[in-house]
């Protein structure tokens, strides 16, 4: 029900991002989704990749500050209404969204969601029968 997202600590330094990405590229890791937010001093890049465990091992080997976090990946339609409906299930259960980003595959949107309560979020997905993807699906995306 959850997938592993990799978070990478990035300094605001010229060329740092491509340096890290090429480490993964060399080992044929595909990037399915990525998002970067930054403060003035540093950024955290969050990525969903085809093989998170392998990607994480590569980063560690190369001494990159990285972290594995499990996040929900739920499938929804790509209209704003579909988004709203999906999110409403979580808010009704009293959960708040810490961060969210999405990507589209075959006309379907996949929402990556991190809530403040993982267990409760899983429960919402089960109860509402929300479509989701798991780690073994990533390799085919």
């Amino acid at each position: 029900m959850t997938i592993n997202q990799i978070s990478i600590f990035l300094e605001n330094k010229y060329g740092k991002l491509s340096e890290i990405l090429s480490l993964l590229g060399k080992e044929h890791i595909r990037i399915i989704a990525a998002t970067i937010a930054d403060t003035s001093e540093f950024g955290i890049m969050r990525i969903i990749v085809s093989d998170p465990q392998k990607a994480y091992a590569i980063l560690k080997e190369n001494n990159v500050s990285a972290n594995l976090t499990d996040v929900l990946a739920v499938v929804t339609g790509s209209s704003a209404d579909d988004f709203a409906e999906t999110l409403a299930h979580f808010t009704k259960a009293g959960l708040s969204i810490e961060y969210m980003y999405c990507f589209a595959v075959n006309g379907k949107a996949i929402l990556i969601i991190r809530t403040n309560n993982r267990e409760a979020a899983r429960e919402v997905i089960r109860r509402q029968n929300i479509e989701y993807i798991c780690e073994s699906d990533l390799i085919q995306l």
């Binding site: 978070s7 937010a37 403060t39 955290i44 972290n67 976090t69």
Partner: peptide, 17 residues
Amino acid sequence: ELSDLFTDDYSVLQGLT
């Protein structure tokens, strides 16, 4: 230097700073 990235949460890093 960070000893490692122990969190993916900005607020934790900002709080540490």
